[in-house]
């Protein structure tokens, strides 16, 4: 066997990747399914319990709080992030716009901070009395917004705070994708639509949306998958706690607490597999819905 044979070479090239993939992704994935049918106290000590973890999970009120919080977060993040970033991209894509590159960088720059460091910064920005968020709202509302407004210690404002930081981090990021997609839409299509008497809204719906459809789906799906894994943002903002009345408890945070604070790797794996199923269902639903979007806009 010659390693230099073009028939053998691809297997050789893929070997390092395949080894690490098998040992540190495929095997743990399979193993976590097995673990999810056991109760463990730390690595090594396991008792097979059948589906008890899953049955317990479905009756665990904290798990449902985590599911509700995670869904709320994903929903509001998407519903605001996608239109906002698409809107900014369309504005930035306008002909003859001054300082386009500087503006683009300004919107993108929060992404460079990263989730962890941005969370640490925002613990200060959300502080009552002196926080920049309150200061800004106080100024914009002409003094109606109270400087004493509590964000991270008030259960009602924890979720809005999480969504805000998430928007700050990711609007510019998805905007980059939309901007690239918009630049790929053939300008002649807009001209043709204009000649046909299509107004701005009709042009947006019949030319822009079909033209950027792939990127739109891509952004929605990766934002959803990322959103379901929400952990660092609330964990750091809320000082390594689930927050007041568990208002910042997420599925991954619950997994972490059960697996690595309480030490039950089995229950943590059951939470993990439930998360996996949720993510697959929601992504499949989104892809199905996007299929019908194409039919509508083509008609």
């Amino acid at each position: 066997m010659k390693l230099n044979d073009p028939k053998i070479a691809p297997y050789v090239f893929l070997t390092p990747f395949a080894v690490i993939f098998s040992v540190f992704i495929a095997w743990p994935l399979f193993r976590s399914l097995l673990l999810s049918f056991t109760i463990t106290s730390g690595p090594g000590a396991q008792v097979f319990v059948g589906t008890a973890n899953y049955r317990f999970l479905l009756q665990d009120p904290d798990f449902w709080i985590a599911v509700r919080n995670t869904f709320t977060f994903v929903f509001f993040s998407l519903v605001i992030q996608v239109p906002l970033s698409l809107g900014l991209a369309m504005f930035l894509n306008r002909k003859g716009l001054w300082m386009r590159n500087a503006l683009r960088f300004a919107f993108f720059s929060p992404h460079l901070m990263g989730l962890v460091f941005a969370s640490i910064l925002f613990t200060l920005l959300f502080a009552p009395r002196f926080g920049l968020v309150n200061e800004g709202l106080h100024a914009v509302t002409g003094g109606h917004w109270s400087m004493d407004t509590r964000w991270l210690s008030d259960a009602r404002r924890v979720m809005p705070a999480l969504v805000m930081v998430n928007l700050w981090l990711y609007v510019g990021y998805s905007m980059i994708y939309f901007l690239a997609a918009l630049q790929g839409v053939d300008p002649q299509l807009y001209e043709a639509a204009r000649v046909d008497g299509a107004g701005p809204f009709a042009r947006f719906w019949n030319v822009t949306i079909p033209g950027i459809r792939h990127v739109l789906i891509f952004v929605v799906v990766i934002s959803t998958i990322g959103g379901f894994q929400l952990f660092e943002l609330p964990w750091l903002l809320l000082n390594n706690t689930p927050g007041p009345e568990k208002s910042g408890l997420t599925i991954v945070m619950y997994l972490y607490q059960n697996g690595f604070v309480s030490g039950d790797l089995g229950y943590a794996s059951a939470i993990g597999w439930t998360l996996l199923l949720l993510v697959f269902c929601v992504s499949a639903l989104q892809l199905k819905l996007s299929g019908s979007l194409r039919k509508e806009s083509m008609a």
């Binding site: 095997w27 976590s32 673990l35 894994q229 690595f260 943590a268 996996l276």
Partner: peptide, 20 residues
């Protein structure tokens, strides 16, 4: 398909693996 798998699913067994 593997890109759609949330990494935290592997957290517990990975810990176990690295422990061993």
């Amino acid at each position: 398909v593997s890109m759609m798998i949330p990494a935290p699913v592997m957290l517990a067994p990975l810990y176990e693996l690295l422990f061993h």
